[in-house]
């Protein structure tokens, strides 16, 4: 078990290195000039030259790479050319918003996906099953960016029910920044109004972001449940007179949870990708919008920082999934 995790840890480091290596060289496929991106149209030639020297952009690529790796080893992700401050600082500022949104979207995924899947499996081929399957098919095929724009139009503009942008109403005084998660910060400050407000602001973007993975999860849950329900021991349990609900929750769900868990790891990673589009449309100050703006202004140190962070988070999620797997299924022993 221990050596397995050592190996996994090495793997995470290897992935991290691969991510930076790949992004770095992708970023240098085409001769780009981030100096102009940062300084704008009116900048003088001397200023551009000075900027290139300051950020080492005048050096050959391999040298730039070595410098980057050297800094990375000491935890320095370099400076963003667009925001002109440390990428690590930017990530610290923007990641909590993404985390908040992803967690909320993940809850949407779970709360919609699992019950819908179970319902469909128990009512196989009945109206509710068909409804769930059709909705899941639609959810899996709807472009997230359009859904975002459409729901904003319907819920914020036409019905005027939910806020259309941001993490907190402008008239609500933001709670002191402790964790960067507005909801948590509001709780820490015992500011209930801000807490409720932050939840309201989360609803639309979290739903938009979570729907796609909820659709996949519902399908998966349904299929797994169907399979489990047809197993002998369930039939035996039912024959022995164990009440319906107990069968479902004690036996079937427990056994269906393993394949579902595997899927969840992947879905959580997918949420980070979806956040790119959702955050851009909802003015959500997370790393998804940050990386889009950075890529648009050819700010590759920032893009690399984000890919590195997300790559690590992804690897971490996989590790946790494995751990949970071992915990839930005593048959699995890692060696």
């Amino acid at each position: 078990m221990f050596s397995y995790f050592i190996r996994r840890l090495f793997f995470v480091i290897f992935v991290a290195w691969g991510v930076t290596f790949a992004t770095f060289f992708i970023a240098n496929v085409v001769p780009i000039d981030p100096a102009i991106a940062a300084l704008g149209d009116n900048a003088r030639e001397e200023q551009i030259q000075e900027f290139r020297e300051r950020y080492g952009l005048d050096k050959p690529i391999w040298q730039q790479y070595l410098i980057y790796m050297g800094r990375l080893a000491s935890g320095d992700l370099g400076n963003s050319l667009r925001t002109q401050r440390a990428v690590a600082e930017d990530l610290r500022e923007f990641f909590p918003a993404t985390l908040e949104l992803s967690v909320a979207a993940f809850l949407v995924t779970l709360l919609l996906g699992v019950p819908a899947g179970i319902l469909a499996a128990l009512r196989q081929n009945k109206a509710s099953d068909v409804t769930v399957r059709v909705l899941a098919l639609m959810g899996g095929a709807t472009p997230v960016f359009f859904l975002a724009v459409l729901l904003q139009y319907v819920f914020a503009r036409q019905l005027d029910l939910l806020p259309v942008q941001g993490r907190l109403d402008g008239f609500t005084f933001p709670p002191p920044r402790v964790t960067g998660l507005v909801g948590v910060d509001a709780l820490l400050a015992r500011d209930w109004a801000a807490f409720v407000d932050s939840l309201l602001h989360l609803m639309l973007p979290a739903f938009v972001l979570g729907l796609f993975s909820a659709a996949i999860l519902a399908r998966m849950t349904r299929a797994t449940m169907l399979e489990v329900l047809s197993q002998d021991y369930i039939r035996t349990a039912r024959a022995k007179g164990v009440a319906g609900r107990a069968v479902i929750f004690r036996h079937a769900l427990k056994n269906a949870s393993l394949p579902i868990l595997t899927l969840l790891g992947g879905l959580l990673g997918g949420l980070l990708s979806g956040a790119v589009l959702t955050e851009t449309i909802f003015s959500w100050p997370g790393i998804g919008r940050y990386v889009t703006q950075s890529a648009t202004s050819l700010d590759f140190p920032a893009v690399m920082g984000v890919t590195l962070l997300v790559g690590l988070v992804y690897a971490l999620i996989n590790l946790i999934t494995d751990l949970l797997y071992a915990f839930l299924d005593p048959r699995i022993r890692y060696s």
Partner: peptide
């Protein structure tokens, strides 16, 4: 009535949040 306003108002009245801002004194641009 926007849900957020409704809930916000209840929260302010019910819980007496001192941090809510006076709308006429705040400009959002």
């Amino acid at each position: 009535m926007k849900l957020i306003k409704a809930v916000g108002l209840i929260a302010v009245l019910g819980l007496g949040s001192a941090l809510a801002q006076d709308r006429t004194q705040t400009l959002i641009y």
